[in-house]
Design a protein around this nucleic acid. Structure first.
Length: 574
RNA sequence: CGGGGUGUAGCGCAGCCCGGUAGCGCACUCGCUUUGGGAGCGAGUGGUCGCCAGUUCGAAUCUGGCCACCCCGACCA
């Protein structure tokens, strides 16, 4: 491709609303343009990157025997009613001319399960994995970060169908290894972490994270055993599991704390540190209302609590808090609280002389000892793990550190969550009718493009891994009006192209500075310059990732040298 | 959904407080010069000032409503 013919609108400045680095660089480099909040167009070079990544994904999915297909964006509401997901709040709804309700596909479990239940009847047809690369639509409450969290984005989603738990485990592992191969080929350092399976259900769930400052997720990594988990999931080690029943007289006293309903206000008022407070958080989980207790300086982890309770937990509304505690939000406490479960964070199992809410307005209770002044119904690990906390893997004595990550892949063992309610089953050789055991496996293509930029850039622009770069080589002719320079460049361009090297030839009649700046910004892995050295029969070759160390290459051997340099770069990723 | 902020030329911004001919830089067009890190000089093109209403002789500017977008939080297959 010749740059003079290419539509590649690079910018010197960026709109003020682009905050995170990948958004700024993707925009400045002319790879994407915003159409609406969370909705983007890919310009030609951006689309090449997207296609290269999609092709890697395709090859690795095919390699584990998954079969590519294509499902529609329009999904009739009836299918989501069957699975019970019609109430999901991020769905885009669309009515047809007859007022029939369609959902724009946000993921395709129902659609693929519908196909399978109609077409698969026998155990002999399984196992099977199907996938597609498709645009997904999610009406995110808050799209952000350019391609990181869009309302319309591309995702590879695959679905596995097995006869039993052993089968789905095999499919799950196959996808895990395919994902590892994909991210390795894409030149991205990833971390596989234990994850919460959320509303999607299922037993086993791993996320693939690209570590980046701007990542929305916090991950905890053990410094000793290497265990890694999303903060929503990471368990804390070395915790007590029971409360010892205290002896003696309950000695707590109620003190007046007018207007103090936050932890900070109570600490200020009473002159105690936050770790001597117990926060009592009233939570709704399914039909039950529960009091969750964590130390004043800790954060309640709702997914963890939800797993303890058996259904997802959310903060109760103010009216419920009032009803349960007879007080405003901010004055709840475990002492004298009756009729509801009290879940105590395990860290507090032996806590003594604590401050809690008094269940009356403007009052707290001091000198509270667990097991003496009150008895919890459950003791469990329900707070969010922090850097420095002990690792939760049994037998490991390591400690966690934290990092931020961008979730680019998520793989789930779904069990029979969908097959059971939708009636997807096969007949076994025994004659038994058995629910199909499913897995689902998402990989955000557009998000991975953004994550790659987050992971690979410098002050001058993007540094693409060669496997997903818009072009492998950029060839700059410094002065196109110089016949020797232009002649050498033209010939090299032809030879490289003939040799199958993916080369962008910057033949524009621009000043050299413009071409160098654009080459840096666009991040082509290899840069070749036909400049003043041509007079001595030399070209300059340099790697984008090692820009300070150019080498001079004789024109006579340039084609072969550059081709082998590209091959070498590719080799680093396999 | 709560809090904060922004909408003026393709991009970045000033003008608004204190109403009176819409401005700057980049980009773009033409000419000449220039060619190893976003060139110089000269001459030009381009704007319903987010939308609707109101106040006023007169509104980018004041008032009200609406919309869009960004950030923080909530939320998040």
């Amino acid at each position: 491709m010749r740059a003079s013919q290419l539509f590649s609108p690079t910018l010197r400045e960026v709109p003020a609303d682009a905050e995170i680095i990948s958004h700024r660089l993707l925009f400045r480099a002319g790879l994407v343009r915003k159409v609406a909040a969370g909705v983007y167009s890919y310009l030609p070079l951006g689309w090449r990157i997207h296609q290269k990544l999609a092709q890697i994904v395709r090859e690795e999915m095919n390699a584990i025997g998954a079969q590519e297909m294509f499902m529609p964006v329009l999904v009739p509401r009836e299918l989501l009613e069957e699975s019970g997901r019609i109430g999901v709040d991020i769905l885009f709804h669309q009515k047809d001319r007859n007022e029939r309700d369609f959902i724009l596909g946000f993921t395709h479990e129902e659609v693929v399960t519908d196909i399978v239940r109609n077409c698969v009847q026998s155990w002999k047809q399984l196992p099977m994995s199907l996938y597609q690369i498709q645009t997904k639509f999610r009406d995110e409450p808050r799209p952000r970060g350019g391609l990181i969290r869009g309302r319309e984005f591309t995702m590879k989603d695959s679905y596995s169908f097995d006869l039993d738990e052993a089968g789905v485990t095999k499919s799950f592992e196959a996808h895990r290894s395919a994902y590892e191969a994909i991210f390795k080929r894409a030149g991205l350092d990833y971390l596989v972490v234990d994850a919460d399976s959320g509303a999607i259900g299922g037993s086993q769930s791993n996320e693939f994270m690209i570590l980046a400052e701007s990542g929305e997720d916090t991950v905890l990594v053990c410094d000793t055993c290497g265990y890694a988990a999303n903060a929503e999931r990471a368990e804390i080690g070395g915790l007590l599991t029971t409360v010892a029943v205290g002896t003696g007289d309950a000695a707590s006293t109620v003190v007046s704390t007018p207007g103090a309903h936050t932890v900070a206000e109570v600490c200020d008022f009473l002159g105690v540190p936050a770790d001597k407070l117990i926060k009592t958080i009233i939570v709704q989980s399914g039909d039950q209302v529960v009091a969750a207790l964590v130390r004043g300086d800790r954060e309640l982890n709702l997914p963890k609590l939800g797993r303890v309770l058996g259904s997802p937990a959310e903060l109760a509304d103010a009216a419920t808090v009032q009803r349960v505690t007879n007080a405003l939000v901010g004055f709840a406490g475990p002492v004298g609280l009756s009729g509801i479960r009290i879940v105590l964070d395990a860290e507090l199992a032996d806590a003594a002389d604590m401050v809690v809410g008094a269940n009356e307005n403007d009052a707290h209770r001091t000198g509270v000892t667990v097991g003496l002044d009150f008895m919890p119904t459950d003791v469990a690990d329900i707070r969010t793990a922090l850097a420095g906390d002990p690792c939760g893997k049994s037998g490991c004595s390591g400690r966690y550190s934290t990092a931020h990550g961008i979730e680019v892949g998520h793989i789930f063992n779904l069990g029979t969550r969908y097959s059971k309610v939708m009636g997807a089953s096969v007949q076994m050789d025994t004659g038994e009718q058995r629910d199909i055991v499913m897995g689902c496996y998402g990989l955000g293509i557009s998000r991975t493009v953004a994550a790659a930029v987050e992971a690979h850039h410098d002050d001058d622009g993007i540094i693409w891994p060669v496997s997903i770069a818009p072009y492998e080589v950029v060839l700059i002719v410094v002065n196109p009006k110089d016949d020797a320079q232009r002649g050498a460049a033209e010939q090299l361009y032809q030879e490289l192209t003939n040799k199958g090297v993916d080369v962008l030839y910057d033949d524009r009649d621009e000043r050299s500075g413009v071409k160098f700046k654009d080459a840096d910004l666009l991040g082509y892995p290899v840069r070749v310059v036909a400049g003043r050295g041509v007079a001595e029969g030399m070209l300059e070759v340099v790697l984008r990732r090692d820009k300070a160390n150019p080498s001079a290459v004789p024109i006579s051997s340039a084609t072969a040298d550059i081709a082998s340099l590209v091959a070498e770069e590719k080799g680093r990723l396999s």
